[in-house]
Simulated scan of single mutants.
Amino acid sequence: MDIIITSCYDGFIRLLDVEKESFDLLYTSAYQVFSICRPHDNMNSLFIGESYGSVGSLDIRSSNPNSMSWDLHAEQIYTIDFNSQNTNLMATSSKDGTACIWDLRKLAHLHPQPLKLVRHKDAVNSAYFSPSGNLLATTSKDNNIGLISGANYEVESMIYHSNKTPRFISSFRGIWGWDDSFIMVGNMKKGVDVICVEEKKLAYTMADREINAIPCRFDAHPMLPGVLAISTAGGRVYVWDI
């Protein structure tokens, strides 16, 4: 099934079916939608992060999907991510200064308790599991990259990185590459900082004179190690073969 799902601050979630050449309204929220994500093992399920701190779940196959929801954060949820090795584990990041790991098998509708709670001193822009699922990386406006490890995610390390961006530039979000070795995140000097996980420090910075704006969001190609897509505040997308 060749589909693309889009969301927007207007609360509309739409589904583009490439084969049918149709672009239909899938779901309408009364609130702004800040994030969407599908579990790796269930492409028919969609999780939605809304402005007031809740996560909803719906079946995209339904003509009238009813969302189940849980109040997980005090403020809007910026990212949702699933562990590739155990999709019962879901990570969320929020404006309330926390990132959480949730076990969906134990997610109560009233007063749900996270498996792991990570506190930052400012909004958390993102929280992403590593490719192996053994690590979690958080990016916060408090100028730290959080690294969560251990058998039960009990070990926390903070790595300094300047994450503050001006008002009209998208927030930095550190992503994993093609293994658990490095985290890649943008900087205000129009470069890409590569953080070494083992040494817990900046390893090197990638830059190119063709990139003339601040790189904000990245995506590592899942099938081609070394191929990185970069979007900038200047409205351009670059594909970089590292």
Rank of each mutant, 00 (worst) to 15 (best):
S181R: 14
R119I: 12
Q113G: 03
D17C: 13
F182D: 12
L16C: 10
A99L: 07
S130P: 12
L16S: 06
T139F: 02
T87W: 02
R167C: 14
N143P: 05
K20T: 13
K121E: 15
A203Q: 12
S130C: 13
I60Y: 00
P112M: 07
I195Y: 01
N212W: 04
H73M: 10
Y160N: 02
I80A: 01
L16K: 10
W70V: 06
E75W: 11
K200V: 05
T79M: 09
S94A: 09
G97L: 04
N88G: 08
I175A: 05
N152G: 03
Y153A: 05
Q113S: 04
M90H: 00
N143L: 06
G146N: 01
A30K: 13
T28L: 08
R217L: 07
V194A: 11
G191F: 01
G226L: 10
K164M: 11
C196P: 05
A137V: 13
T138G: 05
S231N: 13
S69F: 03
Q32G: 02
P215N: 06
A99G: 15
P166S: 10
P222H: 04
G146V: 09
V18C: 13
A74V: 08
W102G: 00
H120Q: 12
L58W: 02
H109R: 14
T79A: 01
Y204P: 04
G150N: 13
N125R: 09
M90W: 08
G146K: 05
P114M: 03
E21G: 09
I148G: 02
E75Q: 15
R119Y: 06
V194M: 12
S62F: 00
L104Q: 10
K116W: 00
F23G: 00
T139M: 08
S45M: 08
N163L: 02
Y204G: 03
L25V: 15
S84A: 12
R209W: 07
H221A: 11
D71M: 05
M43Y: 01
S94K: 01
D71W: 07
I36T: 15
Y238R: 01
G11H: 00
I60T: 11
G174I: 01
K106D: 10
W102E: 06
S132Y: 03
L72A: 00
D10L: 09
F82L: 05
L110R: 08
E210L: 13
F34L: 09
E210W: 04
L46Q: 04
A123G: 08
Q32D: 11
R217E: 14
S140N: 07
I159V: 13
E75M: 12
D122I: 04
L107W: 07
S162E: 15
V124F: 05
K190H: 08
T28V: 12
I214M: 10
K201Y: 05
S63E: 15
L135C: 11
T28S: 11
T205W: 05
P166C: 06
D219F: 09
G177E: 14
T98P: 06
V185F: 01
T98K: 04
V118H: 04
K201P: 08
G191T: 02
L202Q: 07
V124C: 10
P225N: 10
L25I: 15
K190W: 00
K200S: 05
V33R: 00
V124D: 06
T139D: 03
Q32C: 07
